[in-house]
Simulated scan of single mutants.
Amino acid sequence: MRPADTTARPSVDVLISEVGPRDGLQSVQAHMPTALKCAWIDALATSGLREIEVGSFVPPRLLPQMADAAQVVRHAVARHPGITVMALVPNLRGAEAALAAGTPKLTLPVSASPAHSLANVRKTPAAMVDEVRAVVAMCRDTAPDTVVEVGLSTAFGCTLQGPVPEDDVIALAVACAEAGVHEVGLSDTTGMAQPAQVRRLFRRLQQELGPRAGAAHLHNTRGLGLANCLAAYDVGVRTFDSSLAGLGGCPYAPGASGNVVTEDLVYLFESMGVRTGVDWQALVAAREVLAQGLPGEPLYGMSPLAGLPKGWAPAA
């Protein structure tokens, strides 16, 4: 990742990329009011998070929860200049809107499963690589400082297709890197991954892409989210997507629920002596803002319920 200016901030060992305001909110039926959405992002920023995915630029008729994406981006960029503000764009049109709003980092979903790709973005994986190439070219011409990344959806399996061949995942990752993106990460969109698979696939990704091998976006659908994060960490992954209170999932992948809980992930790493730069107590406070914005929505996480152990201290 290439975070925005973090001058005077302490160094970290891993980057926690908070995806709740996008991945989380797109997966619930209720619409969080824009003012509360911005207040939630403010609370997240206060915790020390260095990267926040604040929305997606998709047609409001498809995801009305994201209709205010431009307004939210402008708020986050103006209010939090030390944070990398990121938005998802599914195509060139979405990227144009995101750049018009001043979004400094774009992420494109490219699915390794043709079935999921058609359901999610109505394009084949090959057509999405062409879309990625067009977005990269536009950014180079009009906004050269913009960071463009790809998250390879369904990299570990698909509820529509079933198993996804690992060779297909790696070939698609190489194609996206050749299209010019800064990074390519792997996403367990459907929560089907297990630690041995995570280690194997991220090792292959790193062998092929080197420093352009990107984030681990892992779900807790079947209870293996943290175990899979540790597996990725063990093979050198240092950027992890997660969502406050575990909010989210993919609306176009049946049964795909449960992002890794940011509070639990931060607690895990800090307990191991791995510095995240994130204040766990401030994350718990941000849950209260989230609850105000989505009253009645289930909030997940083990550490917020149990609290911190006596004598616990974050990584020095």
Rank of each mutant, 00 (worst) to 15 (best):
V73G: 07
S117R: 03
C139L: 06
L25Q: 06
N259W: 03
G225S: 13
A119I: 07
G293Q: 13
D141L: 06
W312L: 05
A213E: 09
G223H: 14
P64T: 10
W280F: 15
A306C: 14
V136G: 14
A98F: 03
L118H: 10
N220S: 06
T146C: 15
L36N: 03
P10Q: 12
V181F: 02
T159D: 04
S303L: 05
P81L: 11
S303N: 02
K310V: 14
T190S: 15
G311V: 01
T46A: 10
A196R: 13
V266T: 02
P211T: 07
R275I: 08
V28D: 11
A137M: 11
Q161N: 09
G273T: 01
L299N: 10
N220C: 13
C229W: 01
P59S: 14
Q26T: 05
G311I: 02
Q197A: 07
G157F: 00
R50Q: 11
A143Y: 00
T262P: 02
D141V: 04
F202I: 10
L283C: 00
S56G: 14
D264I: 11
P10N: 05
L283D: 00
E183S: 15
F240G: 04
H219A: 08
Q206F: 01
V237M: 00
D130W: 05
T276I: 02
R287C: 10
A67G: 07
V198Y: 06
A101K: 00
P314K: 01
Y252E: 09
V72Q: 09
G249P: 14
Q161V: 06
S17K: 05
H31Y: 09
A231K: 00
Q207K: 13
E178H: 14
Q29N: 13
S17Q: 04
V235Q: 11
R122T: 10
N228T: 04
T146L: 03
Y252C: 09
H182A: 15
T34S: 05
S303R: 04
P304W: 08
M138N: 06
G307S: 12
V58T: 03
M302Y: 13
A95H: 09
L283E: 06
A98G: 09
G246H: 10
T239G: 06
Y300I: 01
E208N: 07
T159H: 15
A101C: 04
V284K: 11
L118R: 13
R50P: 06
T142R: 04
I52L: 09
G185R: 10
S271M: 04
G180I: 01
A155N: 02
D23Y: 07
H182P: 02
A215Y: 04
D42S: 12
L283T: 00
A316C: 13
D234G: 10
E53T: 13
G191D: 11
E288N: 10
H31T: 11
G273H: 00
M128T: 07
H217K: 14
R61D: 15
E96Q: 15
A78C: 00
G102W: 15
L205F: 11
A39Q: 14
R212P: 10
T107C: 14
K310Q: 15
L36W: 08
D188Y: 01
V110G: 02
F202E: 04
M1R: 08
R50G: 15
L308N: 06
M86K: 03
N259M: 07
